[in-house]
Structure formats: C-alpha cells, structure tokens
Design a protein around this nucleic acid. Structure first.
Lengths: 168, 168
DNA sequence: ATGCTGGCTATGTGGAAGTCAAGCCAGGGG
DNA sequence: CCCCTGGCTTGACTTCCACATAGCCAGCAT
C-alpha cells in the first residue's frame, strides 16, 4: 500500500480514532460478530440468538441492546397468530453493510485456519458459483495490495481540523 | 441469505467453531487489528508499531509475538549499514490475505460511523479511482445479500465427522 | 569498560467481556 | 386468577486486554 503525498512521512501523522478503530468499538467483540453471523443466517429471536451463538442470555441481552442502540439491529414487536406479542431483531441497512467484513473474516479463516477449507461455502443462489470478498474498483476488477494508495479525503472547508481523525 | 437443503432447519445444527469464530481468536483484539492496519500502511519496526497504534510496548510485544506464532507476521533480522542488527516484522501471505477484512471494517466505519465519510480514502494507485470491498463472483459482479446461499462444503470421505466444525 | 538505545520482559492495576445461577415481569392460556 | 413462558435483569466471579512503570539485555559508539 502506498501512502499519498502528505501521508508519506509516517513520523508526522497518527491514525487516531480511524474508522477501523471506531468500527471495532462497535463490533469488536466475539459476541457482536457472532450475533451478526446468526442474523445473516436468518435468526431473529432472542433465545435463538443466545443458543445458536453459544453465549449466555445475559450477554446476548446486553450485546443486542448495544447493537440496537448503535443502529445495527432494529427491535420490532410482532405476533404469530394465537401467540402473545414477541420481539424480533432485524438487521438494518447499517447492519447489512457489515456483510463484507464478516464474510471476509470467514473467507480468511476458511483459507488459513481450517485444514479442509472450512465447513460452509457461500455461493450465488441462482448459479451456485462461489463468491469471494475482494477489494475492487467500480467495474469489478480486483485490485492487489501493491496497487493501492491511501490518500487524505478532501473535505469541505467548513469542517474544522479537530473533526479530522487523522492529523497531518 | 438462504440456507441450503440440510442447513435450512436451524434447530438441528450449530455453527460451532466456525471460521469467523476461529479468525476472531487470532485477530479479534483491537491491538491485533490495528497492528495489521499499520503493517498495511508500511510499518515494519517494533517501536513504530507501538507508537503509531497507540499501545504500550508491552502489549505490542505480546501481540506481535502471537501474530508471528500464528504466521500473520514474519520476524526478520536486518541491519542498516553502520547500525546494529535489528528485527523487522513483515506481513506474510497469510497476513496480507486479511486486507479485505480490515478494509471492509474501514469502509463500514467511514460510511456509518463518521459523519464526513472518514479521513482517508483508498484508491487504485494508477488511476486514482476509489476502491471498494465487496462480495462478488469470479467475474467481478457484486452479489447482493439476498442472492447469497450458504451450503455445506463437500468433503472427502476420509474426513471424520468430528473434523467438521458444523454438525448436521 | 561504560553507557546509550532498541527491543523486549516483569509486575501490578483497572475495566470490559465472559461465565453460571437466580430472580423478575408482562401477557396470554388454563 | 394463577401459572407458565419468553425475555430480560441482577449478582458474584473469572479471564483477558490494556495500561503504567520499571528493569533487563545485546550490541555498538566512545
């Protein structure tokens, strides 16, 4: 990865509170990640989350509450007929946007931590072709690591310097 | 995400020790993720890692040791002329393969946790075009969440049932 | 030889995340 | 009206990550 112009000298800037760090404060726990995995697999109910992830209900309750506050899940009352009112946890757009991050971890684990390539395969539904998470340009061409460059994002002038997490 | 055939009934299988979970035991800490970030930005030396990530040297030493053991980093002696022997930490292929996971988190943080889209931009070096991390097929077409299907990977028969992290 | 410097290593503390076990509460069904 | 059930909540404890401070050791410069 190349560093663009003013970023090239690593001695003069720090990636304080970068997006990766921020993201980790939100989904950086095992329980949060695995709750998301279950949500992608279609789980919506409290008890199912706890038992399928393999965490206690205490942890599930607390983590789900966090994730609802943050806007990754939405908590909605519902009722099946003849049943009392229940609540279900649904992924929001913000939550669904985490799919590449989760799948990227799974893909890496499959490739490097399991000696058999991993137990599950994710494929395109209609064709059955395997899918991959990759870094690519708008036209879908994969970009290798050494072809990447990091640069400072241009910001509207009204943003004060203190609003930038990366200081020059 | 659709669940394929035998996986459809979530009451009868558990994603025990799935690849995501495994990956998290390895890179699931803030310090590990941020050390990787720095490595992608080009950092190779001990002190630089500690100070740029903003962690103590004690934590840096312990985390780097873990990551070397796991094979994400390689520790190599080197010397600049007239200097004593030093060690540098270089990403291995296994480490470089984590790029999509790290960038996916960054991309999500930029989009949903920063009100200005985040401080840094990753672009293709030669064209300057922004890059994205996405789930796609071999030909580079993005596959949306509802077009994905999860299925059990086919395994050689010689693998005992206990070797499968996902039990039917 | 002495000391500086980079790279750890040791010790002690705090806080977050996890565990198990128990208890609370609201809403139907009996 | 009472009880059961799902969905939390609380408490007591453990483990792990991170912090701060301090000290050790191997070279190389002097």
């Amino acid at each position: 990865m190349k560093l663009d112009g003013p970023l090239a000298d690593r001695d003069v800037w720090r990636a304080a509170r970068c997006s990766i760090d921020l993201a980790l404060t939100v989904v950086g726990t095992r329980s949060a990640m695995l709750l998301l995995r279950e949500a992608f697999y279609g789980t919506t109910r409290f008890h199912d989350f706890a038992s399928r992830v393999g965490i206690t209900e205490a942890v599930a309750a607390s983590r789900l509450k966090d994730l609802v506050e943050i806007g990754v899940f939405e908590k909605r009352p519902y009722r099946e007929e003849g049943q009392r009112t229940r609540h279900e946890y649904l992924l929001t757009d913000k939550g669904r946007a985490l799919l590449p991050a989760i799948l990227a971890l799974m893909q890496w684990g499959d490739a490097y931590l399991q000696d058999d390539g991993g137990p599950l395969q994710v494929v395109e539904d209609s064709t059955g072709a395997p899918v991959r998470v990759q870094v690519c340009t708008a036209d879908g061409a994969e970009v290798p690591l050494d072809e990447l460059r990091v640069r400072k994002a241009r910001r509207p002038d009204r943003l004060a310097a203190k609003d930038l997490s990366y200081t020059p």
